[in-house]
């Protein structure tokens, strides 16, 4: 779809440039006569092609219903979109906006919990035990 969009945009831009140039040339030579029909038609065609191309090459739209949008986040998880920071970390797609509440791992779960209340001692202990057990899955 992206390739088709690019082609349409390219052809549209070409037509638009040509139509604008023709208009300029026409008004410079025959200032009093009205614009010929073919130039107006070319202009309209170019605008049609450009609009089509822009709509086709647009990024996929997000669901506008809350439940579907949230469902998409849960289903797909966070995935990379091919962009990286300078440190080599991939920039991920949108995640759960309520993750900061830290309520996703259930009661007494082993999640990270809330950022402000991060239990550094507990996490260190968990890691040390894992290393002592041989560091397997």
């Amino acid at each position: 779809m992206a390739a088709l969009g690019t082609v349409l945009n390219g052809v549209g831009a070409l037509f638009l440039t040509h139509a604008v140039y023709s208009t300029h040339e026409h008004t410079a030579t025959f200032a009093t006569t009205p614009l010929p029909l073919d130039i107006s038609l070319e202009l309209l065609t170019s605008i049609l092609l450009l609009s089509l191309g822009i709509v086709i090459s647009f990024a996929p739209l997000k669901p506008i219903q809350y439940a579907q949008w949230a469902g998409q986040i849960s289903r797909e998880g966070r995935h990379g979109e091919g962009r990286y920071t300078r440190e080599g970390e991939e920039i991920l797609s949108e995640g759960d906006p309520y993750a900061f509440l830290g309520l996703d791992s259930g009661i007494g779960g082993k999640g990270e919990g809330r950022r402000g209340f991060w239990d550094v001692k507990g996490k260190r202990k968990e890691y040390e035990e894992w290393v002592r057990d041989g560091g397997k899955q």
């Binding site: 920071t85 920039i91 991920l92 759960d96």
Partner: peptide, 9 residues
Amino acid sequence: LSPPSNIPP
């Protein structure tokens, strides 16, 4: 950049 909400060792 965006660590997961559950980080195993």
